[in-house]
Each structure stands twice: as structure tokens, then as C-alpha cells.
Design a protein around this nucleic acid. Structure first.
Lengths: 136, 136
DNA sequence: CCTTGACCTTCCAGTTACGGGAACCCTCAT
DNA sequence: ATGAGGGTTCCCGTAACTGGAAGGTCAAGG
């Protein structure tokens, strides 16, 4: 299988696959003409990584997950711990976004959005006046 | 005011302030010895940018917001539109995170997390078996 | 036989918003 | 003179790619 075919099947851009090779996530062989040649196991790894990335795992976490996947003697506790840590990161990000969203949506609501210059969004950013009806 | 003082007051690292100068967000003057000199207006801009960044606006959005702030003839509609676009981005990110969280928290719950190798997290990533009690 | 098109290759640069660290200058106090 | 605590520039590194240039490979068609 050449890179185009793998790209289609794993739904990853060829560029990304080359990058994954560069950082040692996968190690495809080469044909005499220099083309990469992928076996089923490499395709599976790429699909695995694609799913892990879609769940927000970093590349390094993906590397660890691949290693755990390969390891028939792994303890599921190790996988679970990694996933739980990642879950905590996701929750922290969501908290940050929630705070931004709360502030911003209030401001957007409070802003007339007409052709006049008065704007509670700018006032709040400038901190030269209190937000209309809500503490930051 | 030198950079250290501004850094303390605006609660931004000196490095960040130098970077903001480099990209033209602020244009402090210089003393004969080469030190940057900040006036109150520059401090205000930095505080403004600090708050905007905390709300998740990109640097380029901050640049636009600063320009709108400076423009006494702005229409609040322009500010509002920018904020609303950003709000949409925040919501999209939250949706992504929510999806990841839903999948992952189910998997973490389903994983025994003991010393045995069986792990629904890895199985799901490998897609070699259906997740235990939930569709992806 | 030559060309065209669709593949593939490598390499280089750019992205975002800084942080680390080296090497060096300025100023003041001891 | 020296040391502490400012400041300066410059360059590299981060994460995870993406875009683009320049060029090799291969099968089919005229």
C-alpha cells in the first residue's frame, strides 16, 4: 500500500503520515524506488492514532498508548490512568472556556450592536467602567 | 516606567511585552540608554490586551479591538460582531471538548483499571471490538 | 518515443504566542 | 572594584502540522 491509499483509508492527510514517520510513530518500509510501503499493521496504527487524536490525546500520549496497545502484558490501570489524566485536562479546558463564555456572552448581550460607539465590551476590556450588570 | 514596573502592573511577563512591541501592538519610546519607556497609555493598552487574551481573543483580534477602542467613531456593531464570532469559536471548541469528554469518561468508567490487560479504552481506539455499552 | 497526469519524494518555511537562556550593558551601593 | 538587580538583543524551541517548490516514477495514450 502506498501513502495515498493509506491516507484514504486512515483518513489522515499524507503530510500527516509523513510527519508521523519523521517523529517515529510508524516505520513504513521503502520500495526500491523510494516510495513508502505500508502493511496492514501500520494502517491499523494510523487508524488508532487518528482516533486517539480525535479524543484529544497529544502525540506523545498517542505514542504511549501505542506502546501499551503493543504490550500484551500491560495493566489496564496504566491505560486508565493516562486516560483519566487526559480527562482532567479536558475538564480544565472546558472550565476555562466556560468562564470565557459566561463573560463574553453577557457582554455580547449587553452590547447594543448599532452604529453608536458606546460598547460595554470595550468598556470592560478597558476596565474604565464596570460591566453593565455583572461582576467579572 | 520601565518594563519591570509595567510587567508588574499589567501582570504580563516582560518577555510578552517585548513580544507585543515586536509585533507592533505597542510602541514604547526609548531612553538614551536603550531602555523602553512606557507611558500610562501603553500600560492601559497592555492591561486591555491582557484582559482580551484572558477572554480567549487571538492577538490579531486584540489588535482589531485596540483599533476599535482607539476609534471614537467606531460602531458598537463592529465590536459586537467580533465578539460574537469569537463566542462561536468558543462554543465550537466546547462542543469538541464535550464530545471527547463523553467518549472518554465512558471509557474510563468501563475500564477496570487493574493489573489485567483487557481494556475497553484500547479496544475502542483499535476499533477491533465495539465499545462495551455505548456507540462511538 | 515522447508526453501528460497522477502519483510519489525531499526540503524549507510558516503557523501561534510566547518561554528559556546566553551574552552583554546600565546604575547604584558597598 | 565588585556585586546585585535592573535592562538589552538574539537565537532556539515548542505542537502538530500545512503549504509549496523542485523533482523522481510510472502507466497510458498519441
Amino acid at each position: 500500500m502506498n501513502i495515498g491509499e493509506v491516507s484514504k483509508r486512515a483518513k489522515l492527510p499524507a503530510k500527516t503520515i509523513r510527519y508521523y514517520e519523521e517523529i517515529g510513530l510508524i516505520l513504513p518500509q521503502r520500495e526500491p524506488n523510494g516510495y513508502r510501503v505500508f502493511r496492514a499493521s501500520e494502517l491499523h496504527k494510523l487508524e488508532f492514532v487518528g482516533r486517539a487524536r480525535a479524543m484529544g490525546f497529544s502525540i506523545e500520549e498517542c505514542r504511549t498508548l501505542l506502546a501499551l496497545w503493543d504490550d500484551r502484558n500491560r495493566a489496564s490501570a496504566d491505560v486508565r490512568a493516562l486516560a483519566a489524566r487526559h480527562l482532567a485536562v479536558i475538564e480544565a479546558r472546558m472550565d476555562d472556556l466556560r468562564a470565557m463564555h459566561a463573560t463574553l456572552s453577557d457582554l455580547v448581550t449587553a452590547c447594543a450592536g448599532d452604529d453608536r460607539p458606546d460598547c460595554p465590551i470595550l468598556s470592560t476590556l478597558a476596565a474604565d467602567g464596570a460591566p453593565p450588570d455583572r461582576e467579572l
